[in-house]
Simulated assay, not measured.
Amino acid sequence: MFLATDSVTKTLSIESVDQMINLIGVNNSNLTVIQEGLNVDTAVIGQDIRITGSSADTSAAYQVLQALLSLQQQGIQPAGQDVVSAVKMAQKGTLEYFADLYSESLIKDVKGKAIRVKTFGQRQYVDAIKHNAVTFGIGPAGTGKTFLAVVMAVAALKAGEVERIIVTRPAVEAGENLGFLPGDLKEKVDPYLRPIYDALHAVLGTEHTNRLMERGVIEIAPLAYMRGRTLDSAFAILDEAQNTTQMQMKMFLTRLGFNSKMIVNGDVSQIDLPSKGRSGLIQAEQILTRVPHIRFVHFGTDDVVRNPVVADIIAAYDRGTNGPGSRQAARQAEQRAQHHEHKDEN
């Protein structure tokens, strides 16, 4: 790494070897995230971590390490996601609120580990779910929308606030024709619901999840199964909502019963419908934004809690797909889709 001639060095001393190992991560992975995110160089010398870079960058990296060390002192062992979150907050100048993210445990997972929000966007999302009947989570993959929706649903079930959890998604074909896949409709769409199953297994465990599904306490089904039902005392989650048609979205939202909550998650940059402008998620935001007890929460690349490269990939695609040429191509694709629709009708 190239460092300016006016670079400065700050040293953070660590009390114990265990603290040092947890702080720097396996193969110094945590330090690597800090180095790349804040443009500094680091070196571990004995019980010290030396940080070198510009005055501002060095100070930011030092504060990030202090914040992570403070978590350790509270009994919370920071993982890669925590480091990424701290670095992003330091970049935005909001690191002072980092500790607030860990002030509340949402629930404990199957291993007994506390589940907490990782970003400010996730905090807004959880607060919206708590205080509204319907919450929309809109943003890119990797922001924790699906996982947190399942966490909040399980927490509500355990607290006795609801009697069942219902998870659904539109059965949009992803390169394969569902009609040629073996099994009934549910078996055909189960592979597309894998993120939901993974989240449930992480929170409840595989065996407990299976038992609740056998008893009908947890229901995972295609969106088509929701028609004609009223979901009372239920926590309903609609995933991949960008691929609902406008009629499907209206159908789902009007299933809301008494003592129930709904979460609708989607990424408008990944619409698989032939006519993207007719996505039910896009229309819902246009007409429901000011409706009481409905809240829209938007996630950005700053909320991506996967490998930092994922956020860079999303940002690069956003730049590529928002350019003049890409907008023109999108308009042309939309016109072609509408032409084919009119041709089919005739």
Rank of each mutant, 00 (worst) to 15 (best):
H131T: 02
H131G: 09
H131P: 07
H131Q: 00
H131R: 00
N132Q: 04
N132E: 03
A133K: 03
V134S: 08
T135H: 03
T135V: 04
F136Q: 00
F136K: 04
F136N: 01
G137N: 06
I138Q: 03
G139L: 06
G139K: 07
P140V: 11
P140A: 10
A141F: 12
A141C: 15
G142L: 06
G142F: 00
G142A: 07
T143R: 12
T143D: 06
T143S: 03
G144Y: 09
G144D: 03
G144K: 02
K145S: 11
F147Q: 13
F147A: 15
A149H: 01
A149L: 12
V151A: 15
V151Q: 14
V151S: 13
V151R: 07
V151C: 15
A153L: 09
V154R: 06
V154N: 07
A155W: 12
L157E: 09
L157T: 04
L157P: 00
L157F: 05
K158R: 15
A159I: 06
A159V: 11
G160E: 01
G160A: 01
E161F: 02
E161R: 01
V162R: 01
E163Y: 10
E163G: 14
R164V: 02
R164T: 02
R164F: 04
I165K: 03
I165Y: 07
V167G: 06
V167M: 15
V167H: 00
T168P: 03
T168M: 15
T168S: 15
R169V: 08
R169D: 08
P170W: 01
P170K: 06
P170L: 05
A171Y: 14
A171S: 14
V172A: 14
V172M: 14
E173P: 13
A174T: 10
A174Q: 06
A174I: 07
G175T: 05
E176M: 09
E176G: 04
E176N: 10
N177F: 04
N177D: 14
N177K: 02
N177S: 15
L178S: 10
G179N: 08
G179R: 03
F180V: 04
F180R: 10
L181T: 11
L181W: 12
L181M: 13
L181S: 10
L181P: 05
P182Y: 08
G183M: 12
G183V: 14
